[in-house]
């Protein structure tokens, strides 16, 4: 048994040595400028909305809706995934990436029907995000009540 385990460990080392690593510096620079740009656009939209007399929170909410719309439109037009290939986390982490994670399975699974295809698969990635985000917010709310 030990012999097999040794062989496996030795092989894992070999694999580590042979497998090419991602270029972290290059990837980070790309994620930084694309992600930063999406946020700056978000700021611009927020400011424009605010200039119509909305409060800061309202403007931020409307900006979110617009960004979600843009993320979904770019996904439908087959553009978002190409930006994502370049930018990595730069397009995954902003709210547009959340929108992309909902619309991409919705489109992919429409052949399986609108109920179990589009309706169910839409939450393939967004579902867990909403589940754990909501649970955390409830816990934070309860703790806040007691302290």
């Amino acid at each position: 048994m030990d012999k097999i385990q040794n062989m496996k460990n030795e092989y894992q080392q070999m694999v580590k040595k042979t497998s090419p690593n991602s270029n972290l510096l290059r990837d980070s620079v790309r994620a930084f400028w694309v992600g930063g740009t999406i946020c700056a656009i978000g700021q611009l939209i927020t400011n424009i909305v605010k200039s119509f007399g909305y409060s800061k929170d309202e403007a931020s909410m409307i900006a979110t809706i617009i960004l979600v719309f843009l993320g979904i439109l770019l996904t439908g037009l087959d553009i978002y995934d190409s930006i994502g290939k370049y930018a990595g986390a730069g397009t995954i982490v902003p709210i547009t990436g959340f929108a992309n994670s909902m619309v991409s399975p919705a489109i992919e699974y429409k052949k399986e029907g609108y109920v179990f295809g589009v309706g169910a698969r839409m939450f393939l990635i967004a579902g867990p995000v909403i589940v754990y985000g909501t649970i955390t917010s409830v816990i934070v709310g309860i703790i806040h009540y007691f302290i």
């Binding site: 992600g35 730069g90 982490v93």
Partner: peptide, 10 residues
């Protein structure tokens, strides 16, 4: 925003 994305990339 860019800095948060870098954390994600790492």
């Amino acid at each position: 925003g860019g800095a948060i994305c870098i954390i994600g990339q790492i």
